[in-house]
Write a protein that binds this DNA or RNA. Structure first.
Length: 820
RNA sequence: GCUCGGGUGGCGAAACUGGCAGACGCAUGGGACUUAAAAUCCCAAGAGGCGAAAUCCUCAUGUGGGUUCGAUCCCCACCCCGAGCACCA
């Protein structure tokens, strides 16, 4: 292919270098013996039918820029790519267009592959991964078996979120405001047998390790909130029946005591009633005969309510008195026991001590049902007798009142003192509670890896032997889910019935498939080891390349994918498969490209396809445009206005490359600019500040023009620094500059600090804090000398007006402020 | 309601986390080249004011206060936008 040197023709240049890279294996590092490995990872995409939109391109380009930068710094960069192709998304789309996902997905993938190649990604295609490939999901199933054997996977009948439209169970994380994250249908409560992973066992570690990893702060905060650690106490309330006979001792373990969790043990004396979740097992024991009808009706109503009205709907508190009472262990007084649906069975113990004076919800409830309200905290100016007008949750500056021997203690101290008292009297314990729930991985769908379990009437749940993996997803035509709560796979007897691996009798396969997030919780371990068919990840390869050096992705996965990956890595570490327990050493969340202020989505019809821009302007221009449009970690609104800016810039550089020549007598300030640019671009790329790095390169080009310089040395550096952004362009320019090898084998420019500083600098002079003039001073001049120079300056002198200097502020080499 | 971001020219944005606000780019206006247009190149430009002139003046970083010689940056109160969580005891 010949390239016309007089004009920059992106299409010709880009085609030439795509071919050259493929031919020479430029993007394929030596995976076995890399001197300095760098695993540069981007979250793999889900191959939708629409292809990659400009938002995706923005993210992929940003990650690729970083990988190319590291490559130029001399690292052996491994930048793999793959496809997260299982899951409800794909399946629903397949159902809609009436084509089997097994046929549809490969089409989508090849479209994605075309787009990702065209944008110039430095991908090592030898290591492409698709989660739908039996060679891949064999190991996803293997992973399940490891967790099962280690007791980290268990089955339980549980209330689950059921999406009536997608006809499947959703994880808590996939429910948004009581609606299905994918289709928006109102989620219902159902009881089904589900497989869970014990992620809650890892809550403390998942939380603690957050302090040790180099991640975007926003992502870490999101995970912290999601894990939701609360410190408090567990307190036992002995129970009294309807006729006031005590039926249980104060012991926490008493079957007829009610144990509550509270973060505010300091308010124990103010607990004037108790509330249980309607599903609480104690409800039937505590319901007196006269209350039975009413209580049962309430329990019934709560159970049939969908999650929307239970959690999000009108928040008017409702509840029913059970007829029984419990004893407040601090006051010794009986307190009535109620049920109400604002208390949730999933959190804490499913029961609370209600302190209406200091909790908004309890206050509202007490007001409505005429229950006692006792103040136990008072701030400055309040006393034990001050009436409670609204709930006052405050702790700071509050002291305990109406609290017996604890009166007068500040709230924080009172909290500790009461816990100590509870512990020494066997009435309670300090306790930490998490919001995090175990991970439900069962999905009653078709398009996923079958969970590798077999049920036998004699042996129970038996894992599929590892040698029989993968359990292939059968290519059935009738894959639509139905309302039965059972996966479509159950309808296919030839697959469903199978010999029990233990006893050989007729058994039945587990018909649920696993959650897509299980697929993606370990894919980064697979990339370096794709050619090994007999192991999920090769120990030597994994040691060389993992954990991932830099991971870039969207913050929409801040809690789901990123938390599950961390969990999976910890489990594999504990089982002896991995040496590290955190999968991603450095994570940076990229910003979102929105269109007209809204996230791009098919439903909104605001998806911008990049293909047209790439064919019109070239991939390099488009890459630069995306990276220049705003801060990478913040994103921005997509407008095509301004795309000609980067193109003009490349045209200009194209011309400069053609006229580059050795130049020995470079002006001092141009040299300074050159070195300053090298420093700035290096530092900006390291920090993912791509927009300002590009601006710095533009300034360098402007400076060259200003000085009418065609310095070969500077232009060579310019081309190298441009290479992460405009790789094809840089390759061609490098060749035109007479180099025989790839620009990515060139050395990243180094700067000299001594050449950046100039001997004479200009600083602003302020009089009374207002900038009035500018003076030139020798670098590092003393304050006295600088003041003398300033006073000689006519403008400054005019403002000083011969008044005595009251104060002089001199920030060396930066600014002088004279106060008169 | 709670937790994170964010609010700067006509537009996208910069600004060592206290030191010349608006770099870089888009769009715009004027000029050169051209038969003409496009492209390219040069010049101008935050708003307003006084002027013949600018090395002049005033006002400007969502609003109102505060700290400081000096605030886009720190503190207090508030308004708006975006994201996440949401009856979590």
């Amino acid at each position: 292919m010949t390239v016309d040197a007089t004009t920059y023709q992106p299409d010709v240049v880009e085609a030439k270098w795509l071919a050259r890279w493929a031919e020479k294996g430029t993007n394929q590092p030596d995976l076995d013996h890399p001197p300095s490995p760098f695993y540069n990872l981007m979250m793999f995409p889900y191959p939708s039918a629409e292809g990659l939109h400009v938002g995706n391109m923005f993210a992929f380009t940003g990650s690729d820029v970083f990988g190319r930068f590291k490559r130029l710094q001399g690292y052996d960069v491994f930048e793999p790519i793959g496809f997260d192709a299982f899951g409800i998304h794909s399946e629903n789309h397949a159902i809609k267009v009436g084509i089997h996902p097994a046929k549809l997905i490969p089409q989508n993938i090849s479209n994605f592959r075309r787009q990702l190649e065209r944008i110039g990604g430095m991908f090592d295609w030898r290591h492409e991964v698709s989660t739908t490939d039996p060679d891949y999901y064999k190991w996803t199933q293997w992973l399940f078996l490891q967790l099962f054997k280690a007791g980290k996977a268990y089955k339980k009948r549980a209330a689950v979120n059921w999406c009536p439209n997608d006809k499947t169970v959703l994880a808590n994380e996939q429910v948004e405001n009581g609606r299905c994250e994918r289709c928006g249908a109102v989620v219902e409560q159902r009881f089904l047998e589900q497989w869970f992973f014990r992620i809650t066992e890892y809550a403390e570690r998942l939380l603690k390790n957050l302090d040790t990893i180099d991640w975007s702060e926003t992502t870490r905060t999101a995970q912290r909130n999601w894990i939701g650690r609360s410190e408090g106490a567990e307190i036992a309330f002995p129970v009294v029946t309807g006729d006031s006979r005590p039926v249980a001792s104060a012991a926490t373990s008493s079957p007829l005591g009610i144990t509550v969790f509270t973060t505010r043990p300091d308010t124990l004396f103010g607990a004037t009633f108790m509330v249980l979740a309607p599903e609480h097992p104690m409800v039937r024991h505590l319901t007196t005969p006269d209350r039975k009808t009413e209580v049962e009706a309430y329990v019934q109503a709560a159970a049939s309510k969908d999650l929307v009205s239970r959690k999000v709907g009108e928040r008017e508190k409702t509840g029913v008195f059970l007829g029984s009472s419990a004893i407040n262990p601090a006051t010794g007084k009986p307190v009535p026991v109620w049920i109400a649906d604002y208390v949730l069975m999933e959190y804490g113990t499913g029961a609370i001590m209600a302190v209406p004076a200091h909790d908004e919800r309890d206050f509202e409830f007490a007001r409505k049902y005429g229950l006692d309200i006792v103040r136990v905290l008072a701030k400055e100016g309040e006393s034990a007798g001050t009436p409670v007008e609204t709930a006052e949750p405050g702790e700071e500056g509050h002291k305990l009142v109406n609290s017996g021997q604890f009166d007068g203690l500040p709230a924080e101290q009172g909290k500790r003192a009461i816990i100590d008292w509870l512990v020494s009297n066997g009435k309670g314990n300090g306790r930490v509670q998490y919001r995090l729930h175990d991970w439900c991985i069962s999905r009653q769908r078709y398009w996923g890896p079958p969970i590798p379990m077999i049920y036998c009437d004699d042996c129970g749940a038996v894992p599929v032997p590892e040698k029989d993996l993968p359990v292939l997803l059968p290519p059935i035509e009738d894959f639509r889910p139905d309302d039965s709560g059972v996966s479509p796979l159950a309808r296919h007897g030839e697959w469903y019935y199978v010999a029990c691996p233990k006893c050989g009798k007729k058994g039945r396969r587990e018909t649920d498939v696993s959650d897509t997030f299980l697929d993606s919780s370990w894919y980064f371990l697979r990339y370096p080891s794709t050619e090994f068919r007999d192991r999920p990840f090769d120990p030597a390869r994994t040691r060389t390349w993992c954990p991932v050096t830099t991971y870039i992705g969207g913050n929409e996965h801040a809690v789901l994918h990123l938390l599950y990956s961390r969990f999976m890595t910890m489990v594999l570490h504990d089982l002896g498969h991995l040496q590290f327990e955190e999968p991603f050493a450095r994570f940076r969340a990229h910003g979102l490209i929105v269109k007209d202020g809204a996230k791009m989505s098919k439903t909104k019809g605001n998806i911008v396809v990049p293909d047209q821009y790439i064919s019109q302007w070239g991939a390099d221009t488009f890459r630069m445009y995306l990276m220049f449009l705003g801060p990478f970690q913040e994103g921005g609104d997509f407008r095509d206005a301004g795309i000609n800016g980067p193109r003009r810039f490349l045209d200009r550089v194209w011309g400069m490359v053609g006229s580059a020549a050795i130049q020995t007598d470079l002006p001092r300030d141009l040299v300074a600019r050159w070195h300053r640019t090298k420093r700035k671009v290096t530092e900006d790329l390291e920090a993912l500040h791509y927009n300002t790095a590009i601006a710095a390169l533009m300034e360098l080009v402007n400076a060259l023009k200003e000085a009418d310089s065609h310095s070969l040395a500077i232009i060579e550096d310019l081309v190298i620094m441009l290479a992460p952004f405009a790789p094809h362009f840089a390759e061609e320019s490098w060749e035109r500059l007479g180099h025989g090898s790839s620009v990515f084998d060139a050395r990243w420019p180094v700067w000299e600090d001594s050449l950046i500083v100039e001997d004479e600098i200009e600083i602003p002079v302020q009089v009374n804090g207002k900038t009035r003039s500018k003076i030139r001073i020798p670098l590092g001049a003393e304050e006295k000398a600088v003041v003398a120079i300033a006073l000689k300056d006519p403008t400054t002198a005019r403002f000083v007006d011969n008044k005595p200097l009251r104060k002089v502020i001199y920030v060396p080499n930066r600014l002088l402020n004279l106060v008169v």
